[in-house]
Each structure stands twice: as C-alpha cells, then as structure tokens.
C-alpha cells in the first residue's frame, strides 16, 4: 500500500513498506512517464517524485501514482553489470576476522551474492547495493581519502566509490570499472534496480 506524504508544492513523497516495494514503485512511476514529473529519488522505503508545478500539481501526481499498479520488482528488467574486482583491500582480513571466516570465504560470499543497486544519494554514481546476508560494521575511524574504484562493505550494503572521497566503509577490493563518466549518456554505471555481480580477477 502506498502512502502519500505532503512534501511542499513541487514534490510528492510516496512511502511503501520495504525496499522491494520502493523499487517496484520507482520502476512503475518511471515507466509511466507522467507529465510534469521531472525527477525520481528512490530510497529504502520511499520514492520522492519531483514535479514541475507549471505543468502538474502534487494532487494530480498523487492520484496518477495511486492509479499505477506496480508489479513485483524485476531485477532482470533493470539490467545486469559485472564488476571485476581485485580482492586485496586493506580491510579484507579484518572483515574475515569479524565474520569468523577465511579471506577466501569473504571473497566467495561477495562474488556469490546477487547484489541489487537499491538507491544512491551519497555522491553521483554511488549505489547502495543490497543482497548480502551478513552485517559488517563501518570503520571506527573513517579514512580521509578512499581512491575511486574501491569496493567496500558497510552494514548490509556493498558499494563502489565512484570518486576519490573520504569514507568509513570497510574496503575489501578495487575495480577498474568506471562508476561515473560524464562522457557517457548515462554517466552512472549503476542505476536503481540494476543487478550487480562482482567477479574476482587477478591483480
């Protein structure tokens, strides 16, 4: 069931029960191409729908979205990306120790998980990936500079840093995949709903 929350005069915030429902609603609103809808921000339990008040209104968008029938969310439809990873991150051994498994087992679990890009928000091109069955704490002290392409874990999420930036995620590897490239028509490699598979490669 979608609940609609008032969010000023240029947006509607739609709230659902969980991430699966949020991704399904996001896909349905995106596919509907409603007039005057200018931007969508999917998140853990919500989809923010930004609108142009010169074209439509919060009320019109609310009733149009209420009339949509979001199907069950299909990961396949949003596409799949394979990301090659050299698993030599500075926190790999620490993560293995925290989980009480071998380093090889961490790699096997990370590459064996069907990850889904759930939502962004931290930085352009960054995606919170879900699907992991384990929970890893953030580093107690964030690093001041993490190189672009670093592959990390935090909580139940995995993610790849698109830019050099500070950050507190546990770093388990690195990729040569370019997560953000303004010369591409869609600069972000990962967009919400996409399936992501990590593949171990030699350095």
């Amino acid at each position: 069931m979608t609940r609609f929350l008032r969010c000023g005069r240029e947006a509607v915030l739609a709230e659902v029960d969980d991430l699966e429902a949020a991704l399904a609603l996001y896909a349905a609103v995106r596919a509907a191409g409603l007039p005057g809808v200018v931007d969508l921000v999917p998140a853990a339990r919500t989809v923010l729908i930004r609108l142009d008040p010169g074209v439509t209104s919060p009320e019109a968008v609310r009733s149009a979205v209420a009339g949509l029938e979001p199907g069950s969310f299909s990961r396949v439809a949003a596409g799949t990306v394979e990301i090659p990873v050299v698993y030599d991150g500075p926190d790999l051994a620490g993560v293995a120790g925290h989980l009480g498994v071998s380093v090889d087992e961490v790699v096997a679990r990370h590459t064996g998980t069907q990850w889904t890009m759930a939502f962004g928000g931290f930085a352009p091109g960054f995606g919170y990936l879900v699907g992991g069955e384990w929970d890893v704490p953030r580093r107690e002290s964030p690093r001041t500079r993490i190189p672009a392409g670093s592959v990390g874990l935090a909580g139940r999420f995995s993610g790849v840093y698109p830019h050099d930036s500070p950050g507190g995620w546990q770093l388990i590897g690195r990729t040569t995949a370019v997560l953000w490239d303004l010369d591409r028509s869609e600069p972000a490699l990962l967009v919400p709903g996409m399936r992501v598979i990590f593949k171990a490669v030699a350095r």
Partner: peptide, 8 residues
C-alpha cells in the same frame, strides 16, 4: 533535474 536517480 532528471538526474537525481544517478545521485546528481
């Protein structure tokens, strides 16, 4: 506008 889903 139009790029928020990419984190922009």
């Amino acid at each position: 506008p139009g790029h928020a889903h990419q984190g922009v």
